[in-house]
Design a protein around this nucleic acid. Structure first.
Lengths: 385, 385
DNA sequence: ATGAAAGCGCTAACAA
DNA sequence: TTGTTAGCGCTTTCAT
């Protein structure tokens, strides 16, 4: 006969064992139809050296201190409604027991994870890692963690990443679309829910969410203006896939500059590439066959521009005498190539910082008002144009 | 008088209101000393268009389907102990309701988050982003998410990051130490616990955890051998801070090669930098003042090597005729600089892949046996040496 | 085949 | 000032 007393009716007679749950004996009181458990004495971790020591919980501290879990929670949270000595004692105790709060449990209750999700399309160019640097810095200063997912320029991966993150793991999503992404249903279904979304750098227009943008249109226009003023009339433009916002905007800026200067658009001078080295090389080959000859190239990125410069030099084409080359992004590589690369500095890091700032503001305020912010860039002149 | 019945004793007489908890009226039955709550009728979300629709939970599906939460859980988990029609019905229902599991709650119960934590020291060089690419790929193929924290080469940040991640957010930690990190207590306290740790690229020896390493020692030796064979006798070596494992190993390889060839070590030819452009420039200035003159430079990274090449050329020093330059890491920039950079390819991406592979294996197997894996690299000869 | 209930570790509302 | 209890959304054990 068990020596167990029902906590409900105090009966000691009609108690049955009812299995073991999580290492604890479970009982059933027939008198008051009630299941209960008598907790085992706290096991000393030292007695089980083979098992990894489990993290200490509020419960552990509470039993050592002889107070309730609530009191411990209050102490550690510096709540006012607690005796100050109790508080200090518990805080010291927690420290000595090396207590670490379980962020999962906190997040589950608070419905907030203090984590930002970031989807970037690639790590192959420093553009995105620079933006990440900006995001990280602002986020960590504001006490937010960052989960980074790399879509590898793949639409399916982007969708899967978003789905995963949105399952309660993050408080806000920052997204820079992959080059493959041209439908945006996977974004739209999350709009207006609890979790704010901010697009940066590569954005989809037509979605009612905020954006942080580079000065693509104005930048392309300024660069084209500059080249035309320098005497170029046959300016080739290296772009990404047509569905990308930055492609469209840079083309528009380019087009506007041409119009302004009364130069006809020659579509043969436009090339759409997927950022791979081979496709850049192919585009260049095609351009060089065109007559009248090209005298300027505006590249989608500094990386491609640097590549183009190397290729032109191998063909003994003089830069900038025969062909002016202009990049976009102000990456480190532009200072290494010879001649050094003239480029439009899109202030990549600032874009990341602003994106993080905006999403955190939206998370905290709960206000998802649509904002669109343009980060102004500037032309940096070096030897290539 | 309330028209409420105690669910315990069915009494309707001695029921008191006892406050409201989470929007629900709470009652107290004096007869059987029992608190209870009568749930409000399920609110229709459509009636509250101002509040963001909350995610559907198992409970929501259960009430629509008219079954218990358990049954729903079983259905979605494809458990065998469920009627097959029920299962299919519930699965369809879940899909139509756009159910997304709450990963936090799952993780809390399962004590596993299917997430890897990665601490990298910087995003300023492509070395780390390349490793990240490798980690991401292997991780996502194995169904693991990745949380990336950037320590920005700061010891305190590294500690804070680890602490945060270790609070139940991750199943495994991949770490590449910051240049400031020379004490490793913050790592040691986590060793042997539930969460495995793997160091990669920059590691601390003397810690009983696994490592994935580049061929630093052998690589430096091979490179030095090569330069000596080419006729160099005054080879300068650009290193990171002394406490870094890669610094020590590369120095050792260099030293061994010198010894082997009977060349005396001249400590003036050693420079320790922090990866910033200025310190690299400073080191170079100092070297150029030394007599007898240096005839070779082995750089800590391709980025610094490219920088050095540019600086040397500005001083009209011929490469490789007067000074041979060798890099480490095979970064893209080495193909852009002129002359193109000879480098030791450390197979950075593979390091990331292997690190991810190893930690996932340790997570799944629960076996934290200490392994040390060297990723073999190779010399890539281009114009600079 | 299904359901009731405990519990993961925490916070918050309320009672005492 | 402190404790009791419910509940966050899920999984699991046991009973039915």
């Amino acid at each position: 006969m068990s020596r167990v007393k029902c906590p409900k009716c105090q009966n000691m007679e009609r108690i049955l064992k009812a299995g073991i749950i999580r290492n604890k004996q479970r009982y059933f009181c027939k008198a008051c139809v009630y299941h209960f458990i008598i907790k085992k004495v706290q096991k000393d971790n030292n007695l089980l050296p083979d098992k990894p020591a489990s993290q200490v919980s509020l419960q552990d501290i509470a039993s050592v201190a002889g107070v309730s879990i609530t009191t411990v929670s209050r102490a550690l949270k510096n709540r006012p409604d607690i005796n100050i000595q109790t508080r200090e004692y518990i805080k010291e105790l927690a420290k000595s027991m090396n207590y670490q709060p379980n962020i999962l449990a906190q997040s589950l209750v608070n419905k907030s994870t203090h984590t930002l999700g970031v989807i970037i399309p690639s790590l192959d160019t420093t553009v995105f890692s620079t933006m990440l640097g900006g995001i990280q810095e602002v986020a960590s200063k504001a006490g937010y963690r960052v989960i980074i997912c790399n879509s590898n320029e793949n639409h399916e991966t982007e969708i899967a990443n978003i789905q995963g993150l949105m399952n309660h793991l993050i408080d806000g999503l920052l997204i820079c679309h992959s080059i493959q992404t041209s439908s945006f249903e996977h974004i739209r279904i999350h709009i207006g829910k609890r979790i704010p979304i901010v697009q940066f750098y590569r954005v989809a227009n037509g979605l009612p969410i905020s954006q942080i943008l580079a000065e693509d249109e104005v930048g392309a226009e300024k660069v084209t203006d500059y080249l035309i003023k320098k005497g170029c009339r046959r300016i080739a433009l290296l772009l990404g896939p047509k569905n990308l916002s930055i492609t469209q905007k840079r083309f528009k800026g380019y087009q506007m500059s041409l119009e302004k200067h009364g130069i006809n658009l020659d579509i043969r001078l436009l090339a759409h590439v997927d950022f791979l080295q081979e496709s850049v090389e192919k585009a260049l080959e095609d351009w060089l066959k065109i007559n009248p000859k090209i005298d300027g190239i505006i590249s989608i990125s500094d990386k491609s521009a640097a590549q183009i410069i190397r290729l032109l030099k191998k063909k003994s084409i003089k830069i900038p005498e025969e062909i002016n080359v202009f990049g976009f992004g102000n990456e480190f590589t532009g200072q290494i190539v010879e001649p050094e690369l003239s480029t439009f500095d899109t202030r990549t890091r600032i874009i990341g910082e602003e994106a993080a700032r905006l999403i955190i503001e939206q998370i905290i305020s709960g206000n998802q008002e649509v904002k669109s912010k343009l980060i102004s860039g500037e032309i940096i002149l070096r030897g290539s144009a």
